[in-house]
Design a protein around this nucleic acid. Structure first.
Lengths: 142, 142
DNA sequence: ATTTAATTAGGAATAGTTCCTAATAATGAA
DNA sequence: TTCATTATTAGGAACTATTCCTAATTAAAT
């Protein structure tokens, strides 16, 4: 909720229009703890704005990615989105598909080390661990 | 070259057949430093075995993934493959698409920490940094 | 209220991947 | 070696997430 106004005004300043579609998508992404796919976002948004199109969802997500307001990650060939853009580890459950975030300050150091070793100019990072969440884990051990 | 025989015998032990197609794909993946896509693998293999099909490439890659003999990663919605399965960071150039590996022993610690915090059973990890490689970097700074 | 240019809805097109099936060939047995 | 069995393959059709296209709409400046 808090970041909403910042995002709106930063878009407006750059000359982008504030449409109900964009508001709805940003609002949903800020409020959810999930890491929804474009399709899920579309489904959810549609409940309030029935005529919003999937292509608009994709376009808005592209815009938000450009502005570094959301991160994109890949799970089984499907893009998933996250408005929590601080450095963190994504834990992906290979059974139920749930994604959990974990803060980890040592990621930054690793990034610096890697940049130094490789001479890359690093712009984006993605740290992902996959396995079974605590719920699904017990099913497999039973 | 060295691992070839191990892979062949481990597949044979489990009852899988050793076909020229599988040999060619494994051979190529072991020899290259690249992180080729399925399509590139197909193109390369075809030079020697002109009738090998793309679907066989995909199936073989699935098999090798299952056996943990190759890792899969995603670059712009395209799967890329790597027979170098030790823990490492992938550096992806956002301009030319090149991928470089960097060894980093601290990754293991992070993994252990994350597993402890989250109670996940971790089976797979992927650490990816994207940006510009040293070649492309200079083009953008000019 | 009017203008105008960004944005949208909707669907068609694309591309990577998976699926399907008859034909082929690797392997073990005789 | 020859034969029988059955995994594997080639080829292409089907699928699916995403991108592209265009006329209609609408946010925002005047």
């Amino acid at each position: 909720m808090q970041q909403m106004e910042q995002i709106v005004s930063s878009l407006r300043e750059e000359g982008f229009r504030i449409t109900p579609q964009r508001m709805a998508i940003v609002d949903y992404l800020l409020k959810t703890e999930d890491h929804p796919s474009a399709e899920l976002i579309h489904k959810v948004i549609r409940k309030r704005y029935p005529m919003v199109s999937l292509s608009t969802v994709y376009k808005t997500l592209d815009l938000l990615k450009d502005k570094k307001l959301v991160n994109e990650m890949d799970v089984d060939g499907e893009a998933r989105f996250d408005a929590h853009t601080d450095e963190h580890i994504n834990l992906v459950c290979m059974n139920c598909g749930k994604i959990e975030d974990i803060d980890e300050e040592s990621l930054r150091e690793i990034q610096v080390k890697a940049a130094r070793k490789s001479k890359y100019l690093i712009l984006k990072s993605s740290f992902e661990l996959s396995g079974y969440c605590s719920d699904c884990k017990s099913k497999f051990q039973a």
